[in-house]
Amino acid sequence: MQCNTKQIMTFRISELLMAIDVVFMRDVLGKREYNEVPLAAYGISGIVNLRGNIVTVLDIENIINANNQPHNRLYNIVFDLNSELFSLAVDEIGEFMDIKTNEIEPVPNSIDPSVTAVSSGVIYAKEKIFLLLDFEKSIKLLLQNIETGE
């Protein structure tokens, strides 16, 4: 069996413990003032200027719950998806870890399907379970919010 390793970074959004593959990551930044975008889909908190780039700020919790709840999150994880920059608002930054790809387990059935819709698996590490965030799936779910939102 193939045993590739992956580096992930963990973080927390409200009560959700999550992790992302660091290959997508570009930056971790402190809190930013962002501009809200009216009529935007649920989960889009606004846009922000990051060193001359206009970056769309996403809130995973709002994507999952399909609402526009304002949250006061302290950090921004900037990631690159198909050469477009996004920023993910998170409450707490965890740590970097090396994991083996065969340690990634499928998301248990008992979890809310909306949560499953943004993740590609779970990882058990340091006596905690982290949900591995899948950006592409998250954007897909977000765009669904647009279609049903209008």
Partner: peptide, 12 residues
Amino acid sequence: RPPGSVLKGIKV
């Protein structure tokens, strides 16, 4: 700048 991919749907 053109709108981001997730903001394109907002025509205004």
